[in-house]
Design a protein around this nucleic acid. Structure first.
Lengths: 158, 158
DNA sequence: TTCAATTACTACTTAAAGGTAGAATTTAAA
DNA sequence: TTTAAATTCTACCTTTAAGTAGTAATTGAA
């Protein structure tokens, strides 16, 4: 019954306009999911774009575009040709979430203002500066300190 | 000297690609700034779009569009014609930031997933769920509990 | 009554994220 | 050697947020 309710909620969710309170880019989300999938599979083998696209339910053509960026920026290396695919280029413990976000411009320097008024610091605040400080720093800390091997999670959604 | 450095930083900032780690829509930012400005000015008078646009440095035409939405959704009321303008429709203490964000779809239900995989809760987690819980709830709490009269701030940037 | 300052409305343009198409290149297996 | 499965590259299309343009409607002051 609980299972049924969940399936219904999932289905219903497709019709609900998705809000974006402080969300990541789709590209960042995809990149994190792909890298996490490769990193946290014990078998040391290559993963093809086709397989990743199917398992993670990411549009194939869009995925290959993202994979190209991840190769160029050194997160993964690729083997071309038949039986080819992708593998991590460095240990999972050395890949921070913040680095992935930075790759897709999905980051901001620590002083940029939540209300969009240039630079915000203790001397030049926007009206929301004080209230925003704590949630912001916690969030940044999370992205800066979490690496792919902190994400190991049995039975997590992919 | 400190002042000079700040001006330089502000100027430099215009050339830096602005990142968007968990940012608000421009519309939301503008709306918060406008409502905050009207709410936290002691003189009980009407504010024209022209004045708001100049003081807050928001494109006039874009501002009037946003003001129209704020009127329709009941945050402010408008007086048309010469000497007309806008004023708050209810006490500042009754306007929560989260309500402003909701108006511009800049919000998400509490269960939506940071990695974009439908619904996330303790039974169906994404790989980042546990790490994201605390920063997220702090952030939501801030937007839900902060009202316009909590924002009173002398010498704050407008 | 005229006029200028204002809001309100409709439609369009621009910029950037999200996503797609197709063909070239690479390479191991058959 | 051929072929099929893979990455790579370039160019395009779609969607949405952001911003602009022009005009109609309203109304108080001169």
């Amino acid at each position: 019954m609980v299972e049924l309710i969940f399936i219904f909620k999932e289905w219903l969710y497709n019709f609900v306009k998705e809000g974006v309170l402080m969300q990541l880019y789709n590209t960042s989300q995809y990149a994190i999911r792909v890298l996490n999938f490769i990193a946290n599979h014990s078998d040391n083998r290559l993963y093809s774009a086709k397989e990743l696209s199917e398992v993670l339910n990411i549009p194939y053509k869009f995925l290959t575009k993202i994979m190209g960026i991840l190769v160029k920026t050194g997160f993964i290396s690729s083997i071309q040709g038949r039986e080819g695919g992708y593998e991590l280029n460095k240990p999972a413990s050395e890949i921070k979430l913040i680095d992935i976000l930075n790759t897709f411009n999905d980051d901001t320097d620590n002083e940029s203002c939540i209300l969009g008024i240039g630079i915000c610091d203790s001397l030049n605040k926007c009206a929301l500066h004080d209230q925003w400080m704590e949630p912001k720093s916690l969030m940044r800390k999370m992205f800066e300190e979490t690496t792919l091997n902190n994400l190991t999670c049995k039975d997590c959604k992919l």
